[in-house]
């Protein structure tokens, strides 16, 4: 497909309540800095049902254009309809680049679209940027469980596609006065019978647990001793306005649901601050969190491998240290409030 536009598309996924997922906005911010010197347009893509609130919000983050498809058939994510809509838009408008957040739904969608359009897709990127000359994007991603980083390009096929992890780029500033050109599309959707039908959603008691998008994570391992140990962890996470994470072993022990699991068979996270409490640091855990900007480890065992990748460490009992941290936090906050 030859691109006839200098357009950089960012897929803006929404939560079930219709608000925009932060990762899309982070990508908008990065796309904007990439495109501004080249005179390219940044196009935000919003697909769903009753998405006006999201369109309104996206305008404040500096899209040149917002492309909207709003119809009842898109009220929840389904692989077939979303693939059809995205491919329709791409074939009609021929963007040069399309980037999506590396969320579960977008990672279900992006490879489907790439295969239909026979183009290149790079998964779970931790950086993107134009090559010095030309229109080719260089995607950076970890390989071999984070042992190696690779820079990947898609030199010929268009659009060049990538999924990028949450938390890699900062959230851009919101400008109430910023305006975007809004283009609405109404693709005809197939009326074929659905092959896959959603029967019900079983939510664990983990309201909107998008761990990947949390800037602070307090994670616990076997060192917490029991299910009850996680109460303490939740207190610290709440005080820091962060979220709780966990190692594989405590998930398997049934102390906490799987949605909290960080690591090779769980989630890959890149928060600003990761506090590992009673986690020894098996490699399978490290590959899911080693890219955190700052890692704090608290463990009774001074030889625990977690200290090898930590920025700061305290050797000691989590049941003494976490309460002391809570105490310090309340004091820091009191000082600020004065």
């Amino acid at each position: 497909m030859t691109p006839n536009t200098k357009e950089f598309w960012v897929y803006l996924e929404t939560f079930a309540d219709g608000s925009l997922r932060p990762v899309g906005l982070e990508l908008l911010g990065k796309a904007k800095t990439m495109c501004v010197s080249r005179g390219w347009k940044v196009v935000g893509l919003i697909i769903g049902y009753q998405v006006e609130k999201a369109v309104e919000e996206a305008q404040g983050y500096g899209c040149d254009v917002i492309l909207v498809v709003d119809t009842i058939e898109l009220s929840y994510y389904a692989t077939d309809t979303y693939t059809d809509v995205l491919c329709y838009l791409i074939q009609k408008e021929r963007p040069n680049v399309l980037v999506l957040g590396a969320t579960p739904d977008s990672k279900d969608l992006a490879p489907r679209v790439a295969a239909r359009l026979k183009t290149g897709l790079t998964a779970d990127c931790t950086d993107m940027g134009f090559q010095e000359t030309g229109d080719v994007v260089e995607w950076t991603r970890p390989a071999l469980s984070g042992h190696l980083m690779a820079k990947i390009i898609c030199p010929k096929e268009r659009p060049q596609m990538g999924t990028v992890r949450a938390g890699v780029f900062p959230l851009p500033y919101f400008d109430k006065k910023s305006q975007s050109l809004i283009r609405r599309e109404n693709p005809r959707l197939s009326s074929a019978e659905k092959q896959i039908s959603l029967v019900k959603i079983l939510a664990e008691n983990t309201s909107n647990l998008n761990l990947e998008e949390s800037s602070i994570i307090v994670a616990g391992g076997l060192g917490l001793g029991s299910k009850k140990g996680f109460d303490l962890l939740h207190n610290l996470a709440d005080a820091l306005k962060g979220m709780v994470g966990a190692s594989r072993k405590v998930v398997e022990a049934g102390w906490i649901p799987r949605a909290y699991q960080v690591g090779q068979t769980g989630k890959s996270v890149k928060p600003r601050l990761y506090i590992a409490c009673g986690i020894s640091g098996a490699l399978q855990h490290l590959v899911g969190m080693q890219d955190a900007h700052c890692i704090v480890a608290i463990n009774i065992d001074a030889d625990a491998p977690i200290f090898q990748i930590a920025d700061y460490g305290i050797v000691g009992d989590v049941f003494e240290i976490i309460p002391a941290m809570l105490e310090e936090l309340s004091q820091l906050n009191t000082i600020k409030a004065l």
């Binding site: 042992h147 898609c154 096929e157 700061y312």
Partner: peptide
């Protein structure tokens, strides 16, 4: 359609700063 143009490793962090003693948590 895709090409790997470069692979590299990110050097491991040099060392962990340990806090010890009665003021360890405060300092952290």
């Amino acid at each position: 359609p895709t090409r790997v143009v470069k692979t590299f490793t990110i050097p491991r962090k040099t060392s962990c700063t340990f806090f010890t003693g009665p003021d360890a948590v405060k300092e952290l």
